[in-house]
Design a protein around this nucleic acid. Structure first.
Length: 289
DNA sequence: CCAACGTCCTGCGTGC
DNA sequence: TGCACGCAGGACGTTG
């Protein structure tokens, strides 16, 4: 479930903690999570390298290493990236993940600290990108990053680009918002919340949205994502930040997982439906078509 | 070309 | 109580 706000929270935490640290060793207990080259190759390639940057692109985490290589991580549904400082074993959920053998990959730094990749459902993936990270940014068809669309919190995310990106699509507006090739980083939770905030029906055809509705949607994308980052993301059962702590945005959710409850805006009952095999939550009154 | 569905996985909630 | 099943869903793969 980590979407843009959760990934951004993790990236900011990790940036403070691992930049300039040197990799001593790495271990992998479930090789299927490694994409591309075999784990042994990856392990040899990163040994002795230092982390020089931590960046986010959509829901992708990119750890830049000295020598020009980049470690790519995608957390998918239930993945966690957790940092354990030197000589300070973590408690709580991370301890539980370790004990239940949900840690599948780890990087040990030479100061004794560790970066752990844990994932209950093993959907998350790790890979080493050998080209320079700049090359990746310039080439949107780079395989591991897919064909990523607009970065919604960047300066390049303008209303004009947004309208062009949205306009041609034939699927419902909610499916379009979740399409990583259009806008990168929005998943099911924030698609629901953004559409509620913008008072737009999730089933609406993007072609029929008025200029006024598109303006509201453009604004809601930015305000909802920014607010969620301020609250350090949404935690239900699985998401934790790099320190193993929960995000606080779940208490700010207006419609997601609130079927049968009253709409906080108009008091009507929040509906639950399905779109492309995913749950959709909305208020049928203030998000009417 | 695109839409729709299947796949990967485990934990949790529900119903018999 | 215990078991079977459905559900959660991001992104990729396959099918039609």
């Amino acid at each position: 479930m980590p979407e843009l706000p959760e990934v951004e929270t993790i990236v900011r935490d990790l940036r403070k903690r691992i930049v300039s640290k040197k990799i001593k060793t790495s271990n992998c207990s479930y090789p299927k999570i490694i994409r591309g080259a075999a784990f042994d190759d990856l392990s040899k390639s990163i040994r002795g390298r230092s982390a020089i940057s931590v960046q986010r692109r959509g829901k992708n985490i990119l750890v830049g290493l000295s020598g020009g290589q980049t470690l790519w991580v995608h957390l998918k549904m239930t993945g966690n990236l957790l940092f354990e400082g030197p000589g300070e074993p973590v408690g709580g959920r991370l301890r539980q993940m370790i004990e239940r053998k949900h840690v599948h990959f780890e990087i040990c730094f030479d100061d004794g600290s560790r970066l752990l990749f844990a994932d209950i459902r093993k959907f998350g993936r790790v890979a080493l990108i050998k080209e320079e990270s700049e090359t990746i940014a310039r080439n949107p068809r780079e395989h591991l990053l897919g064909e990523l669309g607009l970065e919604p919190l960047s300066d390049g995310f303008t209303f004009e680009k947004f309208v062009i990106a949205i306009g041609k699509r034939k699927k419902s507006i909610k499916e379009v918002l979740m399409d990583q090739r259009v806008i990168a980083g929005i998943g099911n939770i924030y698609a629901n919340e953004i559409l509620f905030d913008a008072k737009i029906n999730p089933f609406e055809n993007p072609r029929f949205l008025t200029h006024k509705e598109l303006s509201r949607l453009f604004l809601s994308i930015k305000t909802v994502l920014r607010k969620a980052i301020r609250f350090r993301g949404t935690s239900f059962s699985d998401y934790r930040d790099a320190g193993g702590k929960k995000g606080a945005f779940a208490a700010q959710l207006k419609v997601y997982r609130k079927a049968g409850e009253k709409c906080p805006r108009c008091g009507n009952i929040i509906q639950k439906s399905k779109q492309a095999q995913r749950s959709t939550f909305y208020c049928g009154f203030c998000q009417a078509k």
